[in-house]
Design a binder for these strands. Structure first.
Lengths: 212, 212
DNA sequence: TTATATTTAAAACGTTCGTTTATCAAAGGA
DNA sequence: TCCTTTGATAAACGAACGTTTTAAATATAA
């Protein structure tokens, strides 16, 4: 049995609890007791709770961001026209790749991202933006090219609607999956959830103008 | 100048702060200082913070729920077929009606609802469900009738996606409106936001099956 | 080995929170 | 009138939190 150092034990326990309960509702005492390390070691290794949160996210961003950038770059460099469906597919592969990086990695990452957006903590918004700026710009460009009929402003709104859909779905994915099991006796995992949400948001983004 | 009693002053200050900052991030001390009343009066008049939160929501539910029920009942009793667009329009009028009940009432109510869903406080989920059970059932039936090709399970998922879109949009409406003003120099109010989100979710709910 | 740096451990600090208590003023009814 | 109820106010309570301090233990290098 390999020895896992304290820093990693903290990160593993923290990402699980942050995803399940949110950042504010997860105390350092809960994390350290779950990780079976001392309370003070969080501040020793990470400096503060804020920096721990950023470190938890950083582990995923380091894996995900380059993969996403490359995927979008291929699409944007291409000469053949592409659809909104292609754009979302660009996101899908790098996101699902996180499941090989860690068990339930995709779900955890999207939940962490969602919690960060929902809990109004400026430092996280800033942290994500600085690490995701290039990806977001590339993604925005791809969506514009896929929907030449939509104004930039319309795209702005619809991408935020999309973000809301995904973030909310992931943040409450556990509850949704449990309800689906109880009400419809179906087993849905995170991949099944994504497969169901993509048609929804694809159709929404490419929808016609304001209803008559 | 009419005298406003302490209870109402607390409710007014609380709903504003809850909508802006969320329930957990709004302390009773902030509420009572804003309302210019004594700290202990919250527990005197409402019993606890939980009950204050429920009282804040109740003021809106009492106005909104009957109106929504009636609106949906008319639709469900009708013999002529209706579309998804009609269903959402059923929600629109009672929701916008809240703007006459209170300044920015629609926005505040949807934000309160969204915060309640996002902040995983069981008592609020329970409170909303018991007060909204009939409306939700009627709404669900209307959506099924408007989309006979979709299975109940598919509708279940898409309605939760819709909920996520609306809730997230409303919870961050202030930020979104500010960004839109800065980036596109447009003034969007809550009504404009709804007009933009309805095509998105309408198209999403009625979308075709899983993408190939 | 000794000396130095790193990591763990326990305890306490200072703050904020929801809630409770104790006291007092005002109002209402018999 | 007196007495009870209702409401307002200041003060304090106990718990939980992030963080800091202090000291001991462990690893590293000379």
């Amino acid at each position: 049995m390999q020895k896992v150092d304290t820093k990693t034990k903290i990160l593993n326990a923290a990402e699980q609890l942050f995803a399940e309960r949110g950042y504010a509702d997860t105390s350092l005492r809960l994390i350290t007791s779950q990780a079976e390390v001392n309370l003070a070691s969080v501040n020793y290794h990470f400096g503060s709770k804020k920096e721990l949160i950023q470190a938890v996210l950083a582990r995923y961003l380091e894996v995900c961001a380059p993969s996403l950038e490359q995927s979008l770059a291929v699409l944007n460099k291409s000469d053949v026209p592409f659809t909104q469906h292609d754009v979302f597919n660009c996101l899908l592969a790098p996101l699902l790749e996180l499941n090989t990086f860690r068990h339930r990695g995709t779900s955890i990452f999207l939940q962490l991202l969602g919690r960060g957006y929902i809990e109004n903590q400026g430092h996280l918004r800033w942290f994500i933006t600085t690490h995701y700026g290039k990806v977001l710009t590339a993604f925005n460009k791809a969506v514009q090219d896929a929907n030449p009929d939509l104004s930039k402003e319309e795209i702005f709104w619809r991408l935020h609607f999309t973000l809301g859909t995904v973030v909310f779905t992931m943040a409450s994915s556990k509850a949704l999956i449990d309800i689906a099991k109880a009400d419809f006796d179906v087993d849905v995992d995170i991949e099944g959830l994504i497969k169901r949400v993509v048609p929804f948001i694809s159709s929404g983004v490419s929808a016609g103008g304001t209803l008559p």
